[in-house]
Amino acid sequence: MTQTIEHPVDIAGRGVDQVVAEPAAAPASAAEQPATHDVLIICYSGELEKTWAAMILASTSAAMGVKTRVFVTFWGLQTFVKDSRRITGKNWMQRMMSFMQRPGVSHRKLSKMNFFGMGPWMMGSLAKKYNVASPKELLEVAQVMGVEFIPCQMTMDMFGLTKDDLIEGMGEPVGAATVIGLMAEGSAPLFI
């Protein structure tokens, strides 16, 4: 199952597999093999199609043996609230926000063609027909494959979210400095 990460920003173990496996073996193929960096996905949007893209890339990145982190912030954090939570927040404004847009990975809306839920329903039907895994399935598989999902502390404060509101297996909340720090250390960033 998902392991709880005590230090989501600790990158001491980063790329160990690659480092161990890469050299000596065959210089010819080593030249072909690109250097594997960490991938850092900044999941900012809470829209269905962007959430989907982020989850596809996160699970694929982990499958490729690349150390993968997803920093979830602003609307993106709403995706990582438990599906069962209906209203979140401490004050009326925070509660009103969650009422206006239901949190949870299964309740995402399209940025275009939402049509009061008809668009997402059609997307869901098409996905089923063509055997495309749902964002929820991809999120679960990404967690199993060791993708670290790291919530933004500031967004949690602003929306009045607690660790208990979020799905199981999330990392410790961090801030922008951690994100920039990872990029500065060579993580390939993706802002979605």
Binding site: I56, T60, M64, N131, A133, L138, M145
Partner: peptide, 14 residues
């Protein structure tokens, strides 16, 4: 068979 991207890769990796 029948699965769309990225599941064939993900399932293989697992």
């Amino acid at each position: 068979k029948g699965l769309s991207c990225p599941m064939p890769i993900v399932k293989t990796a697992q």
